[in-house]
Amino acid sequence: RNRTTFSTFQLEELEKVFQKTHYPDVYAREQLALRTDLTEARVQVWFQNRRAKWRK
């Protein structure tokens, strides 16, 4: 699988949710996936990576 390149819009949407919660539930991830045209799995992995970055 190739690396996912996120658009500016997608990143803004993802970051917006991350500001509210670092652990969105499955429903929130599904909604975000639909809004950003990503799969729920991509959204989940983005949050994992974003939390790792945030901890540093």
Rank of each mutant, 00 (worst) to 15 (best):
K20S: 12
N49M: 15
P24T: 01
R42M: 13
F18A: 04
Q31W: 05
K16T: 09
T21N: 12
Y27M: 14
K53R: 08
F6K: 06
F9V: 11
A52F: 04
K53E: 15
L38W: 02
R55P: 08
Q31R: 08
V17T: 12
A33P: 01
T4M: 09
N2H: 10
E40K: 09
L32K: 04
H22V: 05
A41H: 05
E30M: 14
W46Y: 04
T36L: 12
R51H: 03
R51P: 00
L11W: 06
P24H: 01
T36I: 12
R42S: 15
K56V: 07
P24Q: 01
A33S: 09
H22K: 11
T4K: 07
V17S: 10
E13A: 04
Q10D: 02
V17Y: 05
W54S: 12
E40N: 07
L14E: 03
K16G: 07
Q48G: 06
R42Y: 09
L11Q: 08
V26G: 13
R42P: 02
L34M: 14
A28S: 08
T5E: 14
H22E: 05
W54T: 11
Y27R: 12
E13K: 04
F18C: 00
E12Y: 14
L34A: 14
L14Y: 01
F47T: 03
T4W: 07
A33F: 07
E13L: 03
R3H: 15
L14T: 01
E15G: 03
A28C: 13
K20W: 05
F47P: 02
E30R: 09
D25C: 05
W46T: 03
D25F: 03
N49K: 08
E30P: 02
R51L: 07
K16P: 00
N2V: 05
P24M: 01
W54A: 12
H22I: 06
F6H: 10
K53H: 09
H22S: 06
D25M: 00
H22M: 15
R51K: 02
W46R: 03
R1V: 15
F9G: 15
R1C: 14
P24A: 02
T5R: 08
Q48T: 07
F18N: 03
A52H: 07
A41E: 14
K56E: 13
L11H: 03
Q48N: 10
R3L: 13
T21Y: 04
Y23F: 09
F9R: 09
E12S: 12
P24C: 01
Y23M: 04
F18V: 02
H22P: 13
K56W: 02
V26D: 12
T8A: 12
Q44K: 09
E15F: 01
A28P: 01
S7M: 05
A28H: 05
T36E: 00
A52R: 09
T21C: 11
E30T: 10
Y23K: 06
V45C: 09
